[in-house]
Design a protein around this nucleic acid. Sequence first.
DNA 1: AAGGTCTCCTGAGGGC
DNA 2: TGCCCTCAGGAGACCT
Length: 282
Amino acid sequence: MPELPEVEVVRRGLAQHVVSRTISAVEVLHPRSVRRHAAGPHDFASRLTGRRVDDVRRRGKYLWLVLDEGDAVLCHLGMSGQFRIDGGDSEPKHLAIALALDDGQRLLFADQRTFGGMAFSEDGAELPHQIAHIARDPLDPEFDTAMFTTRLRKRQTGVKRALLDQTLVSGIGNIYADEALWRTPLHYARNTRHLRTREIDGLLHHVVEVMREALDQGGTSFDTLYVNVNGESGYFERSLAAYGQEGMPCHRCGTPIRREPFMNRSSYRCPVCQPRPRNGRW
DNA sequence: AAGGTCTCCTGAGGGC
DNA sequence: TGCCCTCAGGAGACCT
């Protein structure tokens, strides 16, 4: 699924194509893709229709269209959501929501697994109330490293679990968590309570570094499930050092990268550079 | 109260 | 060929 770099690529593409455009019509083809809207998809459509998009913003993996008069449309790509700018000829598979714009283009939201979706957020321009609990992401100029460190140390859990907790720090998913842990290097099960300040600073540095590099490459695309608004793939997949690299030699020491289940999903690490902690303290 | 698990959904790929 | 199993980049509801 798209993590911060992929969502930021999408945000930039949307900003380019939809800012200053007015939404002339809304078609909801998959009602499940309209989230947390008790009044139903038809009401959702009517609230968007006729509104001008003034900005496109992002926090972590969420992005939102800022509408005139201060409302917003909150969007999340989930595991398989994608936005496409479409002249009107082709229809992507699993098209869920189509926004017609006043310049004749359409903004299409397609989502194979329907874990993503859109939500109307009244007065949500600054920060939609639905995501008030989501922490700032590490690329946010106002990200507070000292506060993050304090909150991290109050946890009693594995460091990767903490990295994936969007209420602690947002934007990081399974790929960039594994990449940052490999770069630092740290084992995913290291106890948050006992991380040294130097280790936390190093981890944050590598989180920012790997996400900036990925952003420069247009994000990570394993398949056609993640593409930008023009349908193009990103190229960071070829730069991954840990994620998906089972059996490949570690770029530092040559030891084969190991894949193991963690949190009902896969974690990839170098068994030599990122040794398993011997006990709860280390 | 916070940590950890389960579940929503479709499709791809491997083993038999 | 097809059937069944596992797995996939997320996150919120729900347990303990």
